[in-house]
Design a protein around this nucleic acid. Structure first.
Lengths: 147, 147
DNA sequence: CGAAACGCGTGCGGTGCGCACGCTATCGTT
DNA sequence: AACGATAGCGTGCGCACCGCACGCGTTTCG
């Protein structure tokens, strides 16, 4: 059959995407963690952890929503003590979003849990295959069909 | 460092998930296709194509929303001519959701486009590596950390 | 120095969801 | 056979979130 490989990857990817919804991951990873973690605001927190302190406007395309949405989510994270607004001394219009210490700890802990979860699940793979998969997945992600 | 592999996979997977949002995929795949395709209602259409005719209640957990939401989305798909409601002859309470011919054609075309897109992007990979990746991805999906 | 532009936060209208209710059909018990 | 209990579907209601557009304060440039 034509495109057998493409169909197989598409099917597996579809299943994977459906199983890694924000809600599913959230329930899995935040088990017993401190409060203030919100399934809706998490993308902002995560983007901030990845890119470092940025303004709401700069964060918007990364999160995939409007500037106003980022502002509102950031307000919630601020109320939860995970993010603080820091005035830019050079431009007093600007309002950088910065992770607080608690925010840093929380994102680091989530990253650690996720990595540990993945590592545990791959521990039974034949030696070398997990490394090969990681390498291929990175290439597929960076320069693949969704680059 | 501990869990290097888990962190690498988590990072690549994170990037991939962020790039395969419903909105992104929709824009990419429905380019120039017929109307009636809705980014919100698509999950219902897709679930129907995968599992075959089912009731709204049975479809709800597959889609990840409430029964009422499935009903409303199905109504939109029905108005668009992609889905029809078929009374179950055995149980006249039941109301099966069935893909129309146009619905079948649409989902098949989307599947074809996605597979072609993936195949094209992987055509430059060294021979055998794409097959290995597909195999690993399937195993990662079916019996991996998100099974 | 004044006007245009910029950056942020908020009000408003729209949309989608979950919950709960009503209606119809089926099942089970007497 | 009849009637209460149950199942399944669709809809009204309240809530949450988003995008757009506006207002206010700041900066920049002519």
């Amino acid at each position: 059959m034509e495109n057998e490989l493409g169909h197989e990857i598409a099917e597996a990817l579809g299943i994977l995407l459906r199983r890694t919804t924000r809600a599913q991951l959230h329930k899995r990873l935040t088990e017993g963690m401190g409060e203030g973690l919100d399934e809706v605001t998490y993308p902002v927190l995560s983007a901030l952890a990845r890119t470092g302190p940025r303004s709401a406007a700069d964060l918007a395309p990364e999160v995939g929503i409007d500037r106003s949405g980022v502002t509102r989510r950031a307000s919630r994270l601020e109320a939860a003590g995970l993010v603080r607004r820091e005035a830019d001394p050079n431009d007093r219009r600007a309002n950088l979003l910065v992770l607080t210490d608690q925010g840093e700890r929380t994102t680091a802990e989530l990253r650690r849990r996720l990595a540990a979860h993945i590592t545990a699940a791959l521990s039974s793979w034949p030696p070398g295959e997990a490394e090969a998969f990681a390498h291929h997945l990175r290439r597929f992600t960076v320069e693949g069909p969704f680059a």
